[in-house]
């Protein structure tokens, strides 16, 4: 049991996210262990990107709990209280309306808010530290256009004083060599192709030596020709044991590289399985429908 807990990199419990009144995530639970390569697939608008972005709190979840390496990075459980409160209020006007219970609930709410505030305060103090260890790769690459490739990669390690400039540059060059782009070290991102940009973006995240890498549809903005080179880098990473969560439409990658495949729909995880079972023997009706459309 302890061993298992040690190996859990990300733990998500009952995660909810509202955009205004629209509930995008309706209670997501998942544990991601060290070395896992989790492919998240699902129809557009199902909340998979939102889920991923909640993990490092680029998107602010509404309620639930997220732990990273055993440390809380998000915790709000007001939702349970709200449900109880609603149940109490529903009885208003009837004989069953229990004033003492309502008062207790009010007190409990104040207590809860106080606690949440304290938790949030301590989380905020460490959030940037946690994010250093959660690498993220975006659909639109988001390289910094005013910096050279080398500066893009070394900016965070140097400014966060994790490495000296020379060390950081050495690491960056080593990483660039691995993906065969060392000759691009001193050019600006605008001179690169989409595939090259995305590989640089991966390297930029890697330079922080993260414990887990989040990929948000990393190949969706690429020309078909360039998808391969990016997937190749990701596959190498996976083979080296990097823990990865990949939101993707690349079924090939999910099938070949991932060890867990997750189907999300309507804000919840509908099905999770090993790739083999997942693709050969899907259970959920919507998943069957989805797979029949994307696999053809």
């Amino acid at each position: 049991m302890e061993q298992q807990e040690k190996n859990t990199v990300l733990s998500v419990k009952n995660l909810h996210k509202y955009f205004g009144k629209l509930e995008v995530l309706k209670g997501v639970d998942i544990d991601i262990h060290k070395g896992d390569v989790v492919a998240v697939i699902g129809p557009s608008g199902c909340g998979k990107s939102t889920f991923l972005r909640c993990l490092n709190r680029l998107e602010e979840p509404t309620s639930g709990r997220i732990e990273f390496n055993g440390e809380t990075v998000f915790k709000k459980e007001r939702r349970e209280w709200k449900a109880a409160w609603k149940a109490l209020q529903a009885k208003k006007g009837t004989d069953e309306y229990d004033q003492t219970a309502v008062n207790e609930a009010k007190l409990a709410y104040q207590e809860l808010r106080k606690k949440e505030k304290a938790t949030e305060k301590s989380i905020q103090k460490n959030l940037d530290k946690h994010r250093q260890k959660i690498g993220m790769v975006f659909q639109q690459f988001n390289l910094f256009p005013h910096l050279t490739i080398l500066q893009n990669i070394t900016l965070a390690p140097v400014k966060l004083k994790l490495k000296s400039k020379e060390e950081a540059e050495q690491t960056a060059m080593d990483l660039l060599k691995r993906i065969g782009l060392e000759d691009k070290a001193n050019v600006y991102p605008s001179t690169l192709s989409g595939g090259q940009k995305q590989r640089i973006a991966i390297v930029r995240a890697l330079a922080m030596s993260p414990d887990v890498m989040l990929f948000d549809e990393p190949t969706s903005a690429l020309d078909p020709e360039m998808v391969g080179e990016v997937l190749k880098v990701m596959t190498e990473l996976a083979n080296e044991g990097m823990t990865m969560v990949v939101v993707t439409h690349e079924m090939g990658f999910a099938k070949e590289v991932a060890n867990r495949v997750i189907f999300m729909n309507e804000g919840v995880i509908k099905e999770e399985n090993t790739p083999k079972e997942f693709f050969e023997n899907p259970q959920d009706e919507r998943l069957k429908d989805f797979l029949s459309k994307v696999l053809m």
């Binding site: 690498g135 975006f138 988001n142 910094f144 900016l155 400014k159 966060l160 995240a205």
Partner: peptide, 29 residues
């Protein structure tokens, strides 16, 4: 673009560092 801010914070840079090293230089240009 918001993506620039997100990329900065996802690397663990503080809000001030993101503003100073990423957003401001581009904005000034």
């Amino acid at each position: 673009d918001d993506g620039q801010l997100e990329a900065g914070s996802s690397l663990g840079l503080s809000k001030l560092q993101v503003l100073w090293h990423i957003v401001l230089p581009q904005a000034i240009r």
